[in-house]
Design a protein around this nucleic acid. Sequence first.
DNA 1: CAGAAATCT
DNA 2: TTCAAAGATTTCTGA
Length: 887
Amino acid sequence: MSKNKLLLIDGNSVAFRAFFALHNSLSRFKNKNGLHTNAIYAFHNMFDNVMEREKPTHVLVAFDAGKTTFRHETFTEYKAGRSKTPSEFTEQMPYIRELIECLGVKHYELINYEADDIIGTLAKSVDPKEFDVIVLTGDKDLTQLADDHIRVDVTVKGVSEVESYTPSHIEEKYGLAPLQIIDMKGLAGDTSDNLPGVTGIGEKTAIKLLKEYGTVENVYQHVDEMKKSKRKENLIHDKEQALMSKELATINISAPITIQTTDLVYQGKDLDRLIPFYREMDFQSFLDKLDYPDLDIMEESLPDISYTVVDSKEDLTQGMFRPGMSFYVETLDANYHLAEIEGLCWGDEREIYVSKNPELLQNPLMIDWLQSENSQLTVYDAKSTYCLLNRQGIILKNIVFDILIGAYLLDTNDNSDDVAAIAYHYDYKTILRDEEVYGKGVKKGLPEEADSFENHLARKIGALNFLKEPLKKELTAKNQWELFWEMELPLAKVLADMEIAGIKVDSHRLEEMKVEFASRLKEIESRVYELAGEEFNLNSPKQLGVILFEKMGLPVIKKTKTGYSTAVDVLEQLKEHSPIIEEILSYRQLMKIQSTYVEGLLKVIHPTDGKVHTRYLQTLTQTGRLSSVDPNLQNIPIRLEEGRKIRQAFVPSKEGWQIFSSDYSQIELRVLAHISEDEHLRQAFIDGMDIHASTAMRVFGVETADEVTGNLRRQAKAVNFGIVYGISDYGLSQNLGISRQQAKTFIETYFDKYPGVKEYMEKAVEEAKEKGYVETLWHRRRYLPDIHARNFNVRSFAERTAINSPIQGSAADILKIAMIEMAKRLEEEKMEATMLLQVHDELVFEAPKSEIPKLEQLVKQVMEQTVTLSIPLKVDSSVGNTWYEAK
DNA sequence: CAGAAATCT
DNA sequence: TTCAAAGATTTCTGA
């Protein structure tokens, strides 16, 4: 039989270490009730680490009981003078005890004794033949316990590192035996426990004395023999203190404990308790780590919910549909343009209906209800619901609330892509996360028990019903109802239509390119291998690093966490050393075009209509921009000619049609001019000037526009970008390849010449500090908890965000408003033109050639006039037979 | 599954 | 003194 292993954890000191390990993330670790959770979280990680490392058979966490112990009877000042424990820490202690119980571990405390004494007593009382003992603590005092079967692990830093004290390690480190640690404390004292020791003796001197005399007592036996010195005087004078300090530092190994090792057998985590605990703490990452081995356990932890199962479309009756219900369509694949419908559900407080049969969507009662003007539906993700129903030929009409969008607007940080996540946030706990029910990755699928699936769907409706009122109320309270009702909800419909329309891709053109790029890649590859003198994987920065910096001996300019950096800016600097560099750069560019845009795009062309249907994520970005996935149509190449050719493959869907594109000119700087009210910036836009040239004139002191050289304009452009992003002199100097000092001067001059901008920036940071958030012109909020961070970098980032988000976000709002108006006008004008894409400041349409002049005039009017700022908005338009030509 | 590299506004 | 420009997605490698 293998030996037992007993793990003894010093609860208070490990918890305290845990608290400080994540102290600088204090603001990020808060649950929905405002409880700090950093110590709980870090304690859990420390526990997991030690369990993983040691795999003990028995575990106990010992705590100090109360404030006073037998030691205070000896020395009333024991542990006095400690700075007060932060309340952010003490509030977490009860939860740490609860966590320990949930983890299936016993904890123990004993009136009048410290955790040390409990640990010491247990460690020394077990039979060394039966047990190895590991002690985990944040306090070196416990190292005195070390012996051949007891090892003391002291946390070092972070959550994973410990220093293991064995007798031989202590010998190596101090030249002492474990028990002499106590003598050392006796002589040197211990500031954290307020042990006085002997005046003038620290760790070093104590060790020296102990090496000679062995113990405190023996030091005093021989103190008279010492030659006259200040130290001798101190030793004699402080004898009482020394002996008392030693006594206090000695761990009591015969505390009257009432537990035995048989009570401490480790049983493993108690999932029934742990899962609700994680939810309460908002520990999503720990929840994710559980493999959810048993759906039954999860379900049993929830109270029952009642619902009606509808098996076939014949079973539907009029009475099942009422205005004001919630409605939800379930798919397993996130791509709703392709996903199968796995089930649907709807209901209100009175009744919830659930079905696994998508054929219900063919029943006229159902169709009429969904298409009616007065169904007043609440949904979760309006856009996906529109698209899924559209594929069934149903035009969903009367959505009045969207839980997903509502939650996103209220707090963009709360990135919930799951009904349950939002529900938990509002303390509604009777629902499981999709991952818990369906699993994830390759194992994702419907639960084996049909009941589980139906239950889950019913719970979703329950959650939607519950959430709508509090969310609406909060949106109103935060002055965001209009943002929701007039911008985001109508936009969901516009986006759905754009996604459904899709954009036609000329696959033959892509196939041609694929062949051409493949051969060019091969050529470059072989040249690189020749120059390198061997073959390797050019796609591996790691292997490339070895070739460049070890084999070829090029100078190392920058390192990454994992090795040599081979990023563009590094390679640019190495160009002179070898022709291989240019080849590598072209390879990388071409490879990107080939894999992502040529091959990647070919893969996502819809088999029946030859189009690509992206999905715009409406509730993802922190600023209010959209993002685009599957495929991403917001980063199709344009800067370099080679990549730009990809746009030749984006063509109109009908014969005789053209691609039309309009983009805002300098929208972010215009927004900045409006928000900051800086008179010079505003005047430049009002006068219709070239903004970068205008900046160049003011910042570089040039009198007339003619004198602005290309280089000056380029530099001014970089400064303008920097301003929008929340500038730093370093960033600007990197960008322009100038000295930091020079960059600093540019920035100072800019602020001098545009004082309104400077004032805006200061105000934005101020506002963030005061309110905890910043907002756009349309009250889109972004919370910035890090604005108070002690860490310089973290705080600086939050400050730049405070400056940038209202600008980027307001620009996003403007385009969203224009899109909604544009969709409306196209319909009113009964035009065939279709809006296809949005690329942050650009809208792409397709239209019959004959409609183009009218479209051009309409788009310009809508984009420039729907929103009016204190400066004009300006759009540039272009048209062509492909997206390539339209720009 | 994270990191590094490329792409866009 | 720290360290350094805003917001995104996709592909590949290699632990």
